[in-house]
Amino acid sequence: MIRFWAVVNKELLCYAQCIMQFEEDEEKQRKKRRWWGRDWLLRRSIHGQYDALMAELQLEDPEAFVNFLRLDIATFHELLASVEDRLTKNRTRWRDPVSPGLKLAVTLRFLATGDSHHSLMYNVRLAHNTISGMIVSVCNAILDVMEAEVMKTPIEPQDWLQVAERFQGRWQFPPVLGALGGKHIAIQKPSNSGSTYYNYEGFCSIVLIGLVDADYNSDGFRLVMLGLASTAKYGTTVPSTNQYNREPLSFDIPYYIIADDAFAMQSWLMKLFPHRALAHDELVFNYRLSRARRVVENAFGILANRFRCLLRTLQVQVDTASLIVRTCVVLHNYLRERNPSNDVMTLDKEDANHNLYDPIVLTLIFIP
């Protein structure tokens, strides 16, 4: 018995020596870091955009500050105060941590422009890998603090009735509980994904599906979903959930959601008549439905115009892309709730004869 344990201990000692030798060899082969921090990056407090340019914009040109970060100075500081505790890191004897304000500013600038991490690196003087992790942490902080507050999906029947009344009052189309639409968000092809994210338009994407209220100046997106784009039409992703098929639809009057031809027909969904040999009443119905459904197209347009990263191909992993899109929607609702009049000039308008026109160029669009 003693000999047995002696043999076991000898083998364990041999295994331990092999592991230690392997770790020593691996440590020798590991590439040594050439710089603890590049000198020009460490001068960010003097020449970086956050400490230099943004300070000038706050003092001299508030309008340019809004264009730079897509929100005004007061809103930026309010948003910073709400997420600051989640972004603050402890100071160590090795280096000072990146300030929460810089983290938030870099993330907002990325959402506003969609610039690559390497491009942002030369503007804010932070390493690209630091920016990559920073964007994820800031987006998570914003979602944790604000998502439940600004994504106000009605629950009670009375809340849904108020939505239907606004559609009736503004667009003369009863009884509608929301306009449903989708937008492809381009992403780089994930490795080993095959055709999972490949859509019918010829690029890889995830699909943002949104349910929008009738009033531009209220709550923006009531409900959003993110799904794959592997099917021929993104509308086929909706029946896989019960998000829309809820019992508030079962009133005495058949309430429904309006959508376009991209979505599969459902008992709770109203779509256009096919565009062939339509009677006059059917043409009028199609016009009214398209007129009411226009709000979701405008909502996606305002969202993408404000956060232009949604107009570019996101060079990130799929999970990170979904996180970025959710953050854009939450910030969109937050800004619409705080400053509802900011986007008035980007909305469709009608004259006294119900003809559409662009409020910027005042060009009439005739509708028969």
Rank of each mutant, 00 (worst) to 15 (best):
T236W: 10
V136W: 04
A321F: 04
D319P: 06
Y50V: 10
S119L: 05
G235Q: 14
A64H: 07
K152W: 05
S290G: 08
V176C: 08
V163L: 12
V238L: 11
V145A: 08
V316A: 04
Y198E: 00
D85R: 15
Y50S: 04
V106Q: 02
G210T: 13
S195G: 05
C309K: 00
N298E: 12
R312D: 12
Y216A: 11
H275R: 14
Y50Q: 07
L79W: 02
A214M: 14
A352H: 04
M134H: 11
A264N: 09
Q266K: 11
P239T: 06
L69S: 08
T231P: 01
D51S: 12
D213G: 06
K271N: 09
A64I: 02
G178I: 13
A179C: 12
T231R: 13
T237A: 02
L331F: 01
S195T: 05
T231H: 12
V83F: 02
R338L: 09
R222M: 15
R246Y: 05
A64N: 11
R91T: 15
R38D: 10
I209E: 15
L126N: 00
N90W: 01
D85F: 14
N9T: 07
I131A: 14
L108R: 00
W268M: 01
G220N: 09
L59W: 11
F221H: 00
G48L: 02
S137L: 04
N199C: 10
R33F: 07
G301T: 02
H354E: 10
L356F: 15
F110H: 13
V329M: 00
L249H: 07
G235C: 07
L278E: 09
M54I: 05
Y234C: 03
T130Y: 10
L71R: 00
Q58A: 09
G181S: 10
R312E: 15
R3I: 06
E23W: 12
M225G: 08
Q158A: 08
I360L: 09
L180A: 14
V176D: 10
Q243C: 12
G301D: 06
T363E: 13
R38P: 06
H77P: 09
M20Q: 14
S137G: 08
G133V: 11
P368M: 14
L362Q: 13
D144C: 09
G101I: 02
D319A: 13
R38W: 12
L111A: 09
A148W: 11
C18H: 09
E201C: 08
L143C: 04
A259R: 00
D144H: 11
I187N: 12
W5N: 15
G37C: 08
Q266E: 13
G37D: 06
R33I: 07
W171I: 00
N123M: 10
W40V: 03
H184N: 09
V295S: 02
L79N: 05
E337A: 03
D96C: 11
N353M: 06
L87F: 10
W40M: 01
F273T: 01
E56I: 13
E27N: 13
K349C: 14
V106G: 07
Q315F: 03
S205V: 04
R95F: 13
Y334H: 11
S341C: 01
E149M: 06
G202Y: 02
P100H: 13
D219I: 12
A141C: 03
L102H: 03
R70K: 09
D39W: 15
L362W: 07
E147I: 02
V238D: 08
E149G: 05
D25I: 08
K31M: 06
R33M: 03
R308P: 10
M146K: 14
C139V: 13
V330G: 00
L347E: 11
